[in-house]
Design a protein around this nucleic acid. Structure first.
Length: 628
RNA sequence: GCGCCCGUAGCUCAGUCGGAUAGAGCAGCCGCCUCCUAAGCGGCAGGUCACAGGUUCGAAUCCUGUCGGGCGCACCA
């Protein structure tokens, strides 16, 4: 059924061959609304050039030679276009039977996303990273790839050190993360990421008056972190952050700690590989004396300074060098991380973590060894990401070159807040937890108003509110700047998740009513049930049939917005079908009141629509309520 | 200065790797619930696809240039 386009390509190719011509790839496209036919091809234009003849005449000849595949009635020439008319019964029945399962790709993709500094609460800028990465992982998995989601924890960085030091500096003791939360108290009083974040911002302000002492204290904490002495504290902050991401519906396979990457020797081994490169050197004099630098000018033209520091003259590695080691490991070149369970995730599955005291294997599970790597990282980090990739390519090793070729930086643009840049350092952010609370609150108010008798009102409010938030981050391309504004992010009508969810609930409602009427909505319709379906059903079924190719394209392009746009299109097609009226002004697409036979066919189509809406939403990490 | 990204309706965005009359949502106006969920549907209005060249049977889409906006170019990450 979704293979109709493939079948058409083949059929067109045979007809074209009949004219003694060949075309490498025959485009098959949907026919515009008001033109005759369902699918069509402009291939006659291409042939016109080689055959040096009128495209309309060629189209007519192709039509003559065309033998319709199953599910297709006939072809007709519409000017220079060649359009085909589907057999409504056969096509609709094929769509209702469901799509072919996604092929097993036999390739493993490691998706790294989230990677929020473990020193403060996540804000709505991080929301975009989490939601984008989670959706990409879901899409790749659904499209047949073996997917592993990693979340990198920069536990040796300055930011983590500042938060830990801030608590000490202000003489405050962090709250017990297991103590029951006081519902009335602000999160900064009991949720550890918020608690530390508040101290972190306060410490930033205190630097003006007491900079030297703070600097010394932070440096001490950084050294302690490098020795792994304060890992437990960072782990508690990470756990607090994860609670938020889990509530959003994201899950992970592995936390990779920077300190473990370093301790496992990936940094030094990565550097050893790079040092063998003719592009890497250690100058004795000049401004880079004593540092290890990489010369990238041949590969990245136009740089003011073509040398990049990998290891500082004081011996400390730069982020780029550490990341090269990490990326090598992802690609399977290095071994040696140890693993321990970190948590059982509400969304499913055990979350593992790298850990110095862990085991060599994780219950028989193998991490890394990626065939392809996707790094979901802010577009502002494009430059260092390019440097990492260049370093892999410059390593002179086939593995490094392969890793570079299959590493993708999924760059997303910033999220501004009401037109203003956010700063975690200054504390001018909107906490993700607060945004989620507000989204659910607003959705709850609408649920109470629209459907006061709804049984699972709270669960529906969560699904709708969080769905709206996620959808707002996903519906346009990653390279678009998003300005977070309450009215738009939490809008519940128009091009939003609730619009799609509502269409889903409406379909579910019909199936419920069918059950109440003694029908089995899951029973396959009889062989001749589809005889009475017409153009309205075909138009809807055509939309449904697009789903697998949308999913595959979204996977190939790492572009969840394609799925979001498709979900809107399918919901629109379904709503239009549902509300359709005949020439007499009376509804003409009723399901349960249709004559027997047609009734079963429509009911089955509605079931397929519902399943497809739910599947599309699931790729975006959005729940599909049965009622709302 | 150099590099990357963006410029489509008043606003926010889609636009099937060059195809048919450029589509949605929001905002505005007009209609539709004795009918399976009106968070919905139909209609009206709104466009020199930033600008100028070029390639092509055909360009919002590809190439060159210009203008406007964002980001990046540390011994930070």
């Amino acid at each position: 059924m979704s293979d109709v386009k493939d079948a058409l390509r083949a059929a067109f190719a045979r007809a074209v061959a009949h004219l003694g011509a060949t075309v490498d790839a025959i485009p098959v496209q949907e026919v515009p609304e008001d033109k005759p036919g369902d699918y069509g091809t402009p291939v006659a234009f291409v042939l016109a050039k080689t055959l040096k003849r009128n495209p309309a005449a060629i189209a007519a000849e192709v039509v003559d030679a065309f033998e319709p595949p199953d599910g297709v009635l006939r072809a007709e020439a519409v000017g220079p276009y060649i359009n085909v008319v589907l057999d409504p019964a056969a096509f609709t029945a094929g769509v209702v039977a469901g799509p072919a399962p996604a092929p097993a790709r036999g390739r493993k993709v490691v998706v790294e996303h989230t990677s929020v500094n473990p020193n403060k609460e996540a804000h709505v800028g991080h929301l975009r990273n989490v939601v984008l990465g989670d959706a990409v992982a879901r899409i790749l998995r659904a499209d047949g790839y073996d997917v592993e989601v990693q979340n990198y924890v920069d536990d040796t960085g300055r930011q983590a050190a500042e938060s830990l030091f801030a608590a000490h500096y202000f003489g405050e003791t962090p709250p017990d993360p297991h103590a029951p939360a006081d519902p009335g108290a602000p999160r900064t009083a009991w949720k550890l990421d918020h608690w530390y974040g508040e101290r972190y911002v306060r410490l930033g302000r205190a630097k003006e008056a007491d900079g030297d002492a703070i600097e010394a204290g932070v440096a001490d904490v950084m050294h302690a972190l490098e020795r792994g002495e304060r890992r437990a504290e960072i782990e508690r902050i990470v756990a607090a952050q994860l609670a938020t991401f889990w509530a959003l519906g994201a899950t992970y396979d592995l936390l990779v700690w920077e300190s473990d990457v370093v301790a496992s020797g990936f940094l030094s081994r990565g550097l050893a590989v790079l040092e063998a490169s003719p592009y890497v050197e250690r100058p004795d004099e000049g401004k880079y004396a004593g540092a290890l630098v990489m010369r990238v000018g041949d590969f990245l033209p136009g740089l003011e300074e073509d040398r990049v520091v990998l290891v500082r003259s004081d011996g400390n590695a730069m982020y780029v060098a550490k990341d090269v080691g990490y990326q090598f490991w992802k690609a399977g070149l290095f071994e040696g991380l140890r693993y321990a369970p970190f948590a059982e995730q509400p969304g499913g599955g055990r979350l593992w973590t790298s850990h110095p005291a862990g085991a060599d294997d994780a219950d028989g599970r193998t991490f890394a060894h990626a065939d392809a790597i996707v790094n979901v990282i802010d577009a502002r980090q494009s430059h260092p990401q390019t440097l990492v990739k260049t370093a892999l390519a410059l390593s002179g090793t086939p593995e490094g070159e392969t890793a570079a070729r299959h590493a993708h930086h999924l760059a997303y643009e910033v999220v501004t807040l009401e037109g203003e840049a956010m700063s975690g350092r200054k504390g001018t952010t909107l906490a993700l937890d607060d945004a989620m609370d507000e989204a659910v609150r607003r959705a709850g108010a609408v649920v109470a108003e629209k459907n006061p008798d709804l049984a699972d009102a709270d669960a529906v409010a969560r699904a709708v509110g969080l769905g709206a938030l996620r959808f707002a981050m996903l519906k346009s391309e990653a390279k678009r700047i998003i300005d977070f504004r309450w009215e738009r992010a939490l809008d519940l009508q128009g091009d939003t998740a609730p619009y799609v969810q509502y269409a889903h609930a409406r379909a579910a409602s019909i199936r419920r009513a069918a059950r109440d009427a003694g029908l089995d909505p899951d029973a396959p319709p009889g062989a001749d049930a589809f005889a009475a379906v017409g153009p309205l059903e075909v138009a809807l079924a055509r939309r449904v049939a697009q789903f697998p190719e949308v999913r595959t394209q979204a996977a190939d392009e790492l572009a969840p917005h394609l799925v979001a746009q498709y979900a809107l299109d399918l919901a629109t097609a379904w709503n239009g079908y549902y509300n359709h009226r005949g020439p007499d002004g009376a509804p003409d697409t009723a399901v349960l009141r249709a004559e027997p036979g047609l009734r079963e066919a429509r009911l089955a189509l509605v079931g397929r629509v519902q399943a497809t809406l739910a599947a599309a939403l699931d790729l975006l990490g959005i729940e599909a309520p049965e009622a709302m």
